[in-house]
Simulated assay, not measured.
Amino acid sequence: MSLSSELAAGSMEEHDLKFGEKFVAKPKVAIPENDISITQRMISACSGSLITSLVVTPFDVIRIRIQQQEILPQDTCCHNSLKVESVPATGRNTLVKHMASPSAMAKAAEATPELFWMHNRYCKAENCSRITSTFQGFACVAKNEGVGTLWRGLSLTLFMAIPSNIIYFTGYEYIRDHSPISNHPLNPLLCGAFARIMSATFIAPAELIKTRLQSIPSDSKTSSKVLNNLLKDSFSLVRQNGAGTLFKGLQITLWRDVPFSGIYWSCYELFKSRIGHALNADFDNSRGTNDWKVFATSFFSGSISGTVAAFFTNPFDVGKTRLQITFEEGQKPGGYNRNMFKFLINIYRREGIGALYAGFGPRVMKIAPACAIMISSYEIGKKFFKDGNNHN
């Protein structure tokens, strides 16, 4: 502690003793030297991005593949195009029994949006098969498309992670600490939601490219050309339809991410308080022996909170994936309505509740460790800087 701070503290104590009968001493707040700067918070927010991205990207690839299978015909995989006479994936329940007439089959095919990559420029794989589980998907993709495909989009993920985490984590804590309802139980929910709106909007174009890139099956020979072709197609769409095409799916992304963020931060603050109290973890004081308690508290709180939030928002994740990997509206008859609720209700009516939770397994396997690693890295990073500031 600096000499000026000691003098200020001594003066405050003397003032309280002398005028204690007339005035009520205000609670002492943390002095600036003990706090951490915005830059230090930003560094802490980025510290876990690399590890998190390396761990969770394969789960993201499998999640997207499983979700897009729901709009593929049952007897068809990536190398065959959708045809009018094909029975869509919606027929996996009772629909197949009612597809007797050609007109009914044509109507069902129209109701199924076509994937943007279903032509030879992207898909030439002949041996790919449908994914039935997360780990079977790992083996299937690695065998037919190469192990590197499981980390497809990693560079874009890292490119997005740095600005996204800076805006999200730093923004959340700044808004939380300066909110007019900072002591209200709803404060974490509202502040987390607002921080997510800012970060999701900022990285929306890169998120669109990443989702499309991870959805494209290909053999190991053509894998290197996929990103190049995708970027050419994206720039072509921008020239034809304007920059707004890069924000396709942003609305439904916000419907997924904003509730997720609100639920996550509300649960995290709750579990952090409960688990931290049980472990006697101190997130503020400088004690090296306390670091493992801070890590354990934030790790488990983040993991549990991420799982809870993922469960409630998975239908929006399914909708986001489908919307972003299908043709633009107007290019194909029978395209999905942009209204988010109608979009999801149509999926539910045609395919059942199970379709809205497609890919939930790999999504949880991605989100739980991602949230745990990111928040624990962030908390430990902040504590590291606080400890360093205290010793200066």
Rank of each mutant, 00 (worst) to 15 (best):
V24N: 11
A25G: 08
K26S: 12
P27F: 05
P27W: 05
K28I: 14
K28Q: 13
K28A: 13
V29L: 08
V29E: 11
A30G: 05
A30Y: 08
A30I: 14
A30N: 11
A30S: 10
I31Y: 12
I31E: 14
P32I: 06
P32G: 05
P32T: 09
P32V: 10
P32H: 07
N34D: 13
N34R: 06
D35Y: 10
D35T: 15
I36K: 10
I36G: 05
I36Q: 05
I36H: 11
S37N: 06
S37P: 04
I38D: 08
I38Q: 12
I38K: 12
T39Y: 15
T39I: 15
T39H: 13
Q40M: 05
R41D: 05
R41N: 05
R41V: 03
R41S: 06
R41E: 08
M42A: 15
I43L: 14
S44E: 01
C46G: 01
C46L: 07
S47P: 03
S47K: 04
S47C: 08
G48E: 00
G48T: 02
S49L: 02
L50A: 08
L50N: 02
I51G: 05
I51N: 01
I51P: 00
I51D: 01
T52G: 10
T52E: 09
T52R: 06
T52I: 06
T52K: 08
S53C: 09
S53V: 04
L54D: 01
L54T: 01
V55D: 07
V56R: 05
T57L: 11
T57C: 11
T57N: 12
T57R: 11
P58I: 11
P58C: 12
P58R: 12
F59Q: 05
F59R: 03
D60H: 13
D60F: 14
D60A: 14
V61I: 12
V61N: 03
I62C: 03
R63L: 14
R63T: 15
I64E: 04
I64G: 04
R65D: 02
R65H: 02
R65E: 00
I66Y: 10
I66L: 15
Q67Y: 00
Q67E: 01
Q68R: 15
Q68N: 13
Q69C: 07
E70V: 14
I71T: 01
I71P: 01
L72C: 03
L72E: 03
L72S: 00
L72W: 00
P73Y: 04
P73M: 09
P73V: 04
P73D: 09
Q74N: 10
Q74G: 11
Q74R: 11
D75M: 04
T76C: 11
T76G: 06
T76N: 12
C77I: 07
C78A: 07
H79D: 09
N80K: 09
N80E: 11
S81G: 02
S81Y: 06
S81L: 08
S81V: 03
S81C: 06
L82A: 00
L82E: 00
K83T: 13
K83W: 07
E85W: 04
E85T: 03
E85K: 00
S86V: 04
